[in-house]
Amino acid sequence: MANVKIIGLHKKYGAFDAVRGIDLDISDGEFTVLVGPSGCGKSTLLRTIAGLEEASDGTIEIGGEVVNEFRPRDRDVAMVFQDYALYPHMNVAGNIGFGLKARKMPKHEIDQRVMDAARMLGITKLLDRYPRQLSGGQRQRVAIGRAIVRSPRIFLFDEPLSNLDAQLRDEMRGEIKRLHQQIATTMIYVTHDQIEAMTLADRIVLMRDGIIEQQGAPLDLFERPASTFVAGFLGSPKMSFLPGKLLRGENGDAVTLKQTSIPIPAGRTLIDAEDGQAVLLGLRPEHVTRARDAGPEAGHVRYDATIALIQPTGSRSYATFSLDGTPVMAELQAHDVSRPGEQIQIDINMKRASIFDRESERAL
């Protein structure tokens, strides 16, 4: 196992700077997920750590050792790709043990490591099969097994689940998380799927245009996004943004929309915010629920809503209504609303709402 430290990393392709001055410190044994939209630089960063791409500037340390000049095989990392890259003429055991055989490891040790990895991944009954005889999830387990047997200092995953259907992705996410708990090795995982990032990571590193937009524990990014980009990327359904102005007064602050004034709970500090400042009020669906009591509890605001659209999911329904002309989505219980056009009272939890400066799109 080893920590990873990246200082001032750049990766350029001609005039294009794909990774722009990344500083990142990953602790020993941590599961870090690099997430972001296509083209944000996350896979380039991962491949540069692996040595498959040469850094244009900056340093990469693994276990306290600068590895910029090391070949990929000398960095002691194992990579699992989106494409399983299994040898079709080899059975599962042969595929898992191929790297060890290439390193001229004794056969009895190879067999033991292959069997240990197969037990860990639940594929001992598949060792004699060939890749063409396996499902997508089974092939992915074999690819992971091939990485496990090497006992590397770091595991690198480059969107390994993107070729699987939704049910298999759910299953494999659990397998990968369980694997990390068992072997406690440093893992760096790339995905564009925010659900994978939230469920797998000890720490999320959210990238945008080659830089780190925000990093931290999953719930920190979800509940305290640093910008509208972070707030909009994490969460499904995504956050609603309502344009308004910040009014500061002796009796408390409020966000004023076109016609509605929504008070901000007492005790909430808005850093460097000015009276009359143009802001965006960010509301996640789970912050907006159907009213249950005679009056709203402290920190909540009640609103009479006319439901425009209902999206039932089984255990709950997502209902869209207009708040001063801006569509807002509420998370309701399954039978809270029955048809579009129905009028209900909803409560907005302003204690969990986000407020952003409209010009900079940074959190206040």
Rank of each mutant, 00 (worst) to 15 (best):
D293N: 09
G282M: 02
A298T: 14
R302M: 11
H287M: 14
A291T: 08
I271S: 12
D304R: 13
D272G: 12
D304G: 07
I264F: 11
I262V: 11
P285I: 08
L280E: 00
G282S: 02
A291I: 00
A305S: 07
D275S: 03
G282R: 01
R302T: 09
G299W: 06
Q277T: 03
R302L: 12
R292K: 12
A273P: 13
A278Q: 08
P265Q: 10
R284M: 04
I264L: 09
P265R: 09
G267M: 07
T289A: 14
A266R: 05
A273I: 08
Y303H: 10
A278I: 04
L270C: 09
H300I: 08
H300M: 15
A298W: 10
H300K: 14
T306H: 09
G276M: 00
A266C: 06
A305G: 09
R268D: 05
L283V: 05
H287C: 08
V279S: 11
T269P: 01
D275K: 01
I264A: 03
T289Q: 13
G282I: 00
G276P: 05
L283M: 08
P296C: 14
E274C: 03
L270W: 05
R290T: 13
H287V: 08
P265D: 08
R284K: 05
D304Y: 02
L283Y: 06
D275H: 04
A273K: 11
T306E: 15
A266D: 12
I264N: 04
P285Q: 11
L283I: 10
P265G: 11
E297W: 05
A294W: 12
P265V: 10
T289K: 12
D272F: 13
I264S: 03
G282F: 00
I264W: 08
T269Q: 13
A278S: 13
A294I: 10
L283D: 10
V279A: 08
G295A: 14
R290V: 15
R292A: 06
E286T: 02
E297I: 05
R292P: 11
A291E: 06
V279D: 09
